[in-house]
C-alpha cells in the first residue's frame, strides 16, 4: 500500500528542486560570457581557459590531490586495522578508550580538531606543510573508514575465517584470502569517503597548512570571501562533474557486484 499521494509528489519535486537548482545555476553561469555572474551575456568557455592558466589554482589542485591520495590510503589501512581490532578482538587493555577515540572525531567540530592538531605540530616543532595536512586528514578520516568497514565486518560470518584457520591457514592468509575479499567493497567505499573528505576539507587544512602548501578549498575560500567570480563557478562545475561521474560509476559497479554475489549465492544454494 505504498502509493504516492499528490502531497508526496509535490514534496519530492520541491525538495529535489531545492537541492539541485543552486548547483544548476552555478553550472549554467560558469559558461557565461560576462564577468558579472548574475547577468547572462551569452555562452562562453573562456572562464575554463582562465582557470587552466591560473597557476595558483593549478598548484593548489595538485597539492590537494596529493594530500587526498596519501591521507585516504593511510586512513584506509589504519581504519581497516582499527575496525578489525574492534570487531574481532573481544576485550583488550584500553578498549573503551580506543573505541572512544574512533567515534569522537566523527562528532568533533572541525575548528577544534584543527586547532588541537596545529597546537601539537607547533609543540613538537613540525613545520607546517603537505605532511601536516596529510597527518591531520588521516586522523579524522581513518575514523570514518573504520565505521564503514566495521559495519561490514559485523555482518559477515566469522566461521568462514575459523574454517580457513582450521584448514591450516595462517591468520594473515585467512585475512588476505577470506576476510579481505568479503570486506573489499566496504574498504573501497571507505577509501572513497576518505578521499572526498580530504578534497573537501577547508577548516582543518587551514589550521594545519603552512605558507608553503595551500589546498584548493583554502584557495577557493579566500577568493570567495571577496565575492562571486565566474572562475570559481568554472572550478565548481569541474569538481561537481568529477564527483557526479565518480559516485554514479561507483554505485553502478557496486550494484553489479551485489547482483553477481546474489546470483552466486543462489547458485550455491
Amino acid at each position: 500500500m505504498r502509493r504516492l499521494s499528490p502531497f508526496n509528489i509535490v514534496s519530492l519535486t520541491l525538495g529535489f528542486a531545492f537541492l539541485y537548482i543552486p548547483m544548476l545555476i552555478l553550472i549554467i553561469f560558469s559558461f557565461n560570457e560576462s564577468k558579472l555572474v548574475t547577468v547572462w551575456a551569452g555562452f562562453s568557455t573562456k572562464w575554463y581557459g582562465e582557470l587552466l592558466r591560473n597557476e595558483a589554482f593549478l598548484d593548489a589542485a595538485w597539492v590537494t590531490l596529493q594530500v587526498a591520495f596519501f591521507s585516504s590510503t593511510l586512513a584506509t589501512v589504519l581504519g581497516t586495522m582499527a575496525a578489525y581490532v574492534l570487531v574481532r578482538r573481544g576485550r583488550f587493555f584500553g578498549r573503551t578508550l580506543f573505541s572512544g577515540m574512533i567515534y569522537a572525531p566523527l562528532v568533533m567540530p572541525e575548528v577544534i580538531t584543527g586547532l588541537s592538531l596545529l597546537l601539537l605540530f607547533i609543540a613538537i616543532g613540525l613545520d607546517r606543510g603537505v605532511l601536516t595536512i596529510v597527518l591531520a586528514h588521516t586522523t579524522f578520516s581513518m575514523c570514518y573508514v573504520s565505521v564503514v568497514v566495521s559495519s561490514r565486518l559485523i555482518t559477515f560470518d566469522e566461521s568462514l575465517e575459523e574454517a580457513a584457520l582450521d584448514l591450516g591457514a595462517t591468520q594473515w592468509d585467512a585475512f588476505k584470502s577470506v576476510t579481505l575479499p568479503i570486506i573489499a567493497p566496504a574498504v573501497i567505499s571507505g577509501w572513497l569517503l576518505a578521499f572526498t573528505l580530504s578534497l573537501d576539507d577547508l577548516v582543518i587544512a587551514s589550521f594545519t597548512a603552512g605558507p608553503s602548501a595551500t589546498t584548493l578549498p583554502i584557495k577557493i575560500f579566500s577568493s570567495v570571501r571577496l565575492g562571486v567570480s565566474p572562475e570559481i563557478n568554472a572550478l565548481s562545475t569541474i569538481i561537481i562533474a568529477i564527483v557526479a561521474t565518480g559516485v554514479i560509476t561507483a554505485s553502478i559497479i557496486s550494484k553489479r557486484a551485489i547482483t553477481r554475489r546474489q546470483q552466486e549465492e543462489q547458485a550455491a544454494a
Binding site: M23, L26, L202, P217, V224, S236, I239
Partner: peptide
Amino acid sequence: TSFLIRVY
C-alpha cells in the same frame, strides 16, 4: 559534492 561549493 564539495560542502564549500554548495555554500558558495
